[in-house]
Write a protein that binds this DNA or RNA. Sequence first.
DNA 1: TGTCTATTTGGTAAAATAGCCAAATGAATT
DNA 2: AATTCATTTGGCTATTTTACCAAATAGACA
Lengths: 106, 106
Amino acid sequence: MNQITYAKFEARARIIKALAHPTRLFIVDVLSRQEHCVCELTAMIGADMSTVSKHLSILKNVGIIRDDKRGNQVFYQLTTPCILNFFGCIESVLCEMKKEQMELVE
Amino acid sequence: MNQITYAKFEARARIIKALAHPTRLFIVDVLSRQEHCVCELTAMIGADMSTVSKHLSILKNVGIIRDDKRGNQVFYQLTTPCILNFFGCIESVLCEMKKEQMELVE
DNA sequence: TGTCTATTTGGTAAAATAGCCAAATGAATT
DNA sequence: AATTCATTTGGCTATTTTACCAAATAGACA
């Protein structure tokens, strides 16, 4: 694999990695419906606020979400709704997996 | 976030995690065109064969690829082509990111 | 200014991941 | 049976990730 090819896959892996955590998937899902501030997300998730803040910064660093400071709150929103196609893809993969497993059992 | 919700996102995260590595993305891409044995993949990737084998088992464990032993070789193939939609999604996300960044620069 | 409230940052410990080497396994061949 | 080739597994180390706590920062408001 040459450097250029590797760099291409690395760029994709960086985005995928940012999504590779249940809490972060939850955040993306919630934000796809409506923007939220850190404290709202923290309440929904039920983890330390600093933990949530770090998850948010991971998503922000790769450009999946963006922040908007208003007063002493910070609101997060999806930069692009197309991240949601992604969810559909995962869903269909999961679905195929289940089918595949059923066939193995039979 | 209740247990059921968490479990749902965890199942998705498991699949996404398996894809969250440049070498594994490369493997999925290559296998989408044609099945390959471990030594072929190893030659393309240029890492230790044991490393490649471990990447393959990560992909296999979540059901993205399946193996087929023939003689003393093991051929790997995608279990479902729908994993490729996934790539299209990532591509469009990357694309959006670039646009977003351009706008920030202006 | 001092004090809330909201958020981020730094530190730390535990767990997970990644890569290599060496050894083990397993099928094919001599 | 011994050897060879392809692959996997175990062991090890280095690195990364995760989560929490405590401390720092920043805005709003008394």
